[in-house]
């Protein structure tokens, strides 16, 4: 009989190691789940880290109310299939209570408002570690963030005072009132994530694949039309296009790309050949060069 030898995937092993450190070092961790490919990948890695036990923490979804319906449907199916605990907190509740003011106009987005709802949820449940799917290759400010990123009472990131992270030793010791954001796939690139989804045969929401959709053009980007939450001016004409989404943020700030990638293999192929970065289709990052860093200082994940 031949010997069955485990082939190690360095990035996968690193992520599993991080998940296990979170559970060992913190009392109340939670996984921030958006329904996007990165957080779906996190769920698979968490399954791997703790098998045959179930994932030992809940998922938290901060629902802006502007999600793609396909994402919400997918989220509920995944949670049911894996028997996970899901907590949903709605940005709408804070708007209704007058705690936050909704932006208006052409570029209105609820992206920034998520932060307030997230901080409320952290306080409500007493979460001490929030696991997120952010990657360092996404954006320049993220490239500087630690795997265990300490936040103060207000959820703020002090970028000039980060703890050194040496070897793969993770120091999760925090003072009262602080919490930690944890990024297990920090060192993965977009292509790493897609290749992993393909190799592991992980199910993802349908909007990641090419489909026909009513769309309109603005600022050279393609937007989903006929959805109440996406603001469209009358002279912005709709047209049916074959498109897919490369990221699933809010409908109001996530643009589509023209694509014929109907299955995961063609998506991976497309990403390999793409000359535009993933966040090139996210209008929230384009507000200014320092947009991400500023949001992080305010407690964005």
């Amino acid at each position: 009989m031949s010997t069955k030898v485990l082939q190690t995937n360095i990035l996968e092993s690193e992520a599993i190691h991080i998940f296990r450190e979170v559970v060992a070092q913190f009392e109340k961790p939670v996984l921030l789940f958006s329904g996007g490919k990165d957080s779906i990948t996190l769920v698979r890695l968490a399954q791997k880290a703790f098998f045959p036990a179930k994932i030992p923490f809940p998922l938290l979804h901060i629902d802006t109310g502007h999600n793609f319906p396909e994402t919400i449907e997918f989220r509920d199916r995944l949670v049911k299939k894996l028997g996970l605990q899901l907590i949903v907190r709605n940005v709408q509740d804070n708007i209704d209570a007058g705690k936050v003011q909704e932006e208006t106009g052409k570029y209105a987005s609820r992206n920034i408002l998520q932060t307030e709802t997230l901080l409320d949820a952290i306080e409500e449940f007493g979460f001490d570690a929030c696991i997120g799917g952010a990657r360092r290759d996404e954006e320049k400010a993220r490239a500087k963030e630690r795997i265990f990123s300490v936040r103060d009472d207000f959820g703020q990131w002090d970028e000039k005072n980060q703890r050194p992270e040496v070897f793969d030793m993770l120091n999760g010791k925090i003072n009262h009132g602080q919490n930690v954001r944890v990024f297990p796939i920090s060192n993965w690139t977009e292509l790493d994530v897609w290749s992993y989804i393909e190799k592991e045969n992980i199910e993802i929401p349908s909007i990641y694949f090419a489909h026909t959709r009513a769309t309109f053009l603005r600022d050279g980007l393609i937007w989903s039309a006929n959805d109440d939450v996406v603001y469209r001016e009358e002279d912005e004409k709709t047209e049916e296009r074959v498109i897919r989404f490369r990221t699933v943020g809010d409908m109001s700030c996530t643009a589509a790309v023209l694509s014929n990638a109907y299955d995961i293999a063609s998506v991976v192929q497309e990403i390999r050949q793409s000359t535009i970065s993933e966040r090139g289709a996210r209008i929230d990052d384009k507000r200014s060069e320092a947009a991400m860093e500023k949001r992080k200082q305010q407690g964005y994940f």
Binding site: R136, K140, A141, E159, K160
Partner: peptide
């Protein structure tokens, strides 16, 4: 400009913190 990700770094034209960069 591709690697200096913090506002203070771009202002001063120096690198303050370890940045991680990926290529293949």
């Amino acid at each position: 400009l591709a690697t200096d990700g913090l506002v203070a770094e771009r202002e001063q034209g120096i690198t303050i913190d370890v940045a991680h960069i990926y290529f293949s």
